[in-house]
């Protein structure tokens, strides 16, 4: 699995999710599959960050910009920044 495929999974999960529980559960399952596969740290990190960005990713769905990989990656970066900031505080 590469990043492009991973982003496709994230898109599908966001599209299918009506609740944070489903969103998180699906990502946990995906993470487990990735971990069993190659344990690619980079991919696992993206999934971990995405798990913390339910609101942000749902906003992309509402805005209709979820189809663009670059937008998702940018959002992932923002989520990570927020996580770092929250962690620092």
């Amino acid at each position: 699995m590469d990043i492009k495929v991973l982003l496709e999974f994230i898109k599908r999960i966001v599209y299918a999710s009506q609740t944070k529980e489903k969103f998180t559960g699906n990502l946990v399952e995906l993470r487990e599959r990735v971990r069993y596969d190659k344990e690619d740290r980079r991919l696992l990190d993206i999934i971990d960050i995405a798990m913390n960005g339910y609101d942000e990713l749902m906003e992309l769905k509402e805005q209709g910009t979820l189809d663009k990989d670059i937008v998702i990656l940018d959002t992932i970066k923002k989520i990570k920044t927020k996580m770092n900031r929250d962690g620092a505080n």
């Binding site: 999974f9 489903k22 699906n26 599959r33």
Partner: peptide, 13 residues
Amino acid sequence: MAVADRTLITYNV
């Protein structure tokens, strides 16, 4: 749906 490693990850009902 999205499938990985013989696992159905998510399904848009």
